[in-house]
Design a binder for these strands. Sequence first.
DNA 1: TTCAATGCAATC
DNA 2: ATTGCATTGAAG
Length: 802
Amino acid sequence: MAQIAQVIVDVPTMQTNEPYSYAIPDALRDQLQPGMRVTVPFGHRVVSGFVVGITDDTQFEGQLKPIQAVLDLAPVLNSELQQLADWLATTTYAFRITCIQTMLPNLLKAQVEREIAPTAELTAQERATYFPDGMARPFDSTKLDPTTLSGLLKLRQAGKVTVTYQVKDKAAVKTTPGITTTLPTSQLQELATSVAKRAPKQAALLTYLQQLPAQPVAQAKVIKDAGVSAEVIRAGETKGWLKRQPLEVYRDPFQQPVAPTKPLTLNDQQHAAVTAINTAVTQHAAQTFLVEGVTGSGKTEVYLQSIATALKLGRSALMLVPEIALTPQMTNRVKSRFGHQVAVLHSGLSKGEQYDEWRRIDRGEATVVVGARSAVFAPIQHLGLIIMDEEHESSYKQDENPRYHARDVALWRGQYHDCPVVLGSATPSLETRARAAKGLYTRLVLDHRINHRPLPTVHIVDMREEVKQHSGDDDFSAPLMTAIQERLDRHEQVVLMLNRRGFSSFMMCRDCGFVLKCPNCDISLTYHVNPRLMKCHYCGHEEAVPQVCPNCHSRKIRYYGTGTQKVEEALQKLLPSARILRMDVDSTRRKGAHERLLKQFGRHDADILLGTQMIAKGLDFPNVTLVGVLNADTALGLPDFRASERTFQLLTQVSGRAGRAEKPGEVYIQTFNPDHYAIQLAQTQDYERFFVTEMHMRHQGNYPPYYYAVQLTASHEDEKVAAQAMYQILAAVKTGLSDQAIVLGPTPKAIARVKRKYYYQVVIKYKHEPHLKAVLDQIRQGSQRAARGLAVTIDAEPMNFM
DNA sequence: TTCAATGCAATC
DNA sequence: ATTGCATTGAAG
């Protein structure tokens, strides 16, 4: 019986979102397995694809085409991850191939390249114009200029040129020169004694070769260990003593060795938590834990000791951390406990490094994986424990297709492997905390700080009063300045956070009120000092800083609001002797800059670390005794039901940065909303009261976790088209769902225009809608043949309502 | 009437 | 996504 491969082709459309049948040529029959990548003829070209099954027959009536080539020796997705891909596609409304690609390291994304070659049919004239060197040339419609492109297309119509497709697999294994010997030890011994007296180096090499293992050894190692030069090795090669053979090496992103650490002694609460988790690990129970631990309560040690238990049982562990927290501080801590068996996966690595870490995991050489969001797809086998630190972080949700939440994937894998999942946070998401309240998750509370260090004292500064007393737009209140000065006098360090979410410094005319906006997007341009430019944070548009108002030509156009650079300048003016380190998107763009700045601060090369949200997470500097939040409430005004939750989390998180060692810490929060519950409760770090208050608000507003939510968005260059599409979708939703469902919109998004496109959205809130999936799938089908340029997205449980 | 731009369905 | 093929639209 002829075997048939079921292939998902790499063409992300609705029509090709199911397997296509291909004949398996005899030569590939033994080799091919589900989970492998292949190249297949598709229409009039070749595309890459992914084998999801091998069957004996097919529904397809027509003539099957054969698979062209197999790209892998072994499946790149095992059976678990293949099932996970299917689940991901159904729950996130994404294409199957998109899900598969997301789960694989970047380098395994095969690329199709087109080439165009001349034929004998061409006239000399045409040949000279299009093929000056007579050779085939790359045919990339995005890179060729329009005239050449249309010319080439005409020639193709006439059949005067041929187009070929080449699927390029970028997966490259790095090698280093290696050495092996084929001679038996006895012969080498003989040679060593018979070699000329005045060639001691050759003798040394021969002696060394005798104890060489069968596998190739790096040439660099031979040179070092045998004490010979590359010259001698070359001589040995010509004499046939040894053979050169490329040796596969891993690009190790973690070069520097780390000092091993021993498990620390646990306090009672930590001990209770570890015991509970260990029991679940040992019993292979797919139980979910919520470790609710205040900052400084030693959550990480609980994670590490639980991981140790899984390893002892011969199982592996996955630890997820927000990208921003994947600092060397954090990875070092895991590496120094578990050594070489740790693999690290995050976007800071090069693609080659990512691929190599992925392969170490796939081969079972790494049994502890630490990584950011996408590491939840790591090909770990025999999972014994999954940990997700800072579980509330919104970066665990991917904001492009597939719009998955790593927490959901982690829970899925926990079920699959029958292993516990530990969600950890000082400020759990309302969803998670509510599930714990319902008894779905086991709650483990760590409310003592290690060594009973007190929580920092938090002061709230009413900026309305400050502005009244002083003149105008000062970013620094008197109490905060006094506190900073005290630290400088005592040679202690200060962390200042500028909340930048949805807030920036913009140009406004004081005469006519004109605000300078991006010509492509609907948002105001941000003022940058160095280089002095107006920039759009969404599309990257740049323009010169205007001297006069473009609207009324007044010279009184000034910038308003607060950027890190402006604050830095102002602060430097107030404290001329203070050494200030600025950490924001601009100063950390280059690879490793983030790490370098933190090291600098850790060495006390600076007194004040000034930064955006990124400094709130996971830093641990013992000499920091003061934390200031310059503008606590910029996020509160945003049209998002999670605004309070975000604000509370951020303030609590950043407050934890103060006084982590023996010196007590102080926190100053500057706000224009001193009475808001999110800020009041952040002052006392009272998560439980915040939870109860916020749950009440969510209940009032019919928001998650009381309701599920789906956000539908349509975007188009023409505002009318986008709006119209949304009204059609609205009609489909209304007829398809019960009247229990709450449908909001269509409304223009808070930032209605981004990159020359208008955005409209509809939000569905529901408790139980069995037909929802069918309705949304139908919308997905419909959006396929809608107006050109119209993009419809479906986001289940969105994190951003803007 | 002819050629070209535009829309549309199919791709195993 | 990309293609060939049908349909419609503008010039001959």
